[in-house]
């Protein structure tokens, strides 16, 4: 799949997963990779950007392995962003489905 396209979708997935519950980096990567194949290393640059843009905030909490983990939670600003992305996603997928139906591929 086209990488730019995937990246846009990845932002939506990250926001959606974190809005469901607070998550730490590795957990998030695992949950995403359950459905979409991404390069694991690219998740943190995205998280940093979403954090800088004020969509996500972080806090530290101890883990069972001892070292503290950085958890991400969604801000109100982030929720608005997510809603907007969900809308765009729905519009986009329904347009594609419509097109596929018209050309008789579905």
């Amino acid at each position: 799949m086209n990488t730019q396209f995937k990246k846009g979708a990845l932002e939506l997935c990250v926001l959606a997963l974190i809005s469901e519950k607070d998550r730490y980096g590795y957990e998030l990567a695992q949950d995403i990779m359950g459905s979409i194949n991404i390069a694991e290393g690219t998740l943190y640059p995205l998280l940093r950007r979403l954090n800088k843009e004020g969509f996500l905030e972080t806090y530290l909490a101890p883990s069972t392995e001892g070292a503290a983990r950085k958890y991400y939670y969604i801000t109100n600003h982030g929720k608005e962003r997510m809603d907007q992305l969900v809308e765009e996603w729905k519009d986009f997928t329904s347009s594609v489905e419509h097109l596929l139906k018209n050309v008789g591929r579905e």
Binding site: G25, E40, G41, S63, K70
Partner: peptide
């Protein structure tokens, strides 16, 4: 620290260090 945490978490769940790191790129 972010990447260290990531690798530690993965290793904590039983994945091999080398394997996790190769997946990071």
């Amino acid at each position: 620290l972010d990447y260290k945490e990531y690798i530690d978490s993965a290793v904590g769940e039983g994945r091999g260090e080398e394997e996790v790191i190769s997946h990071l790129g």
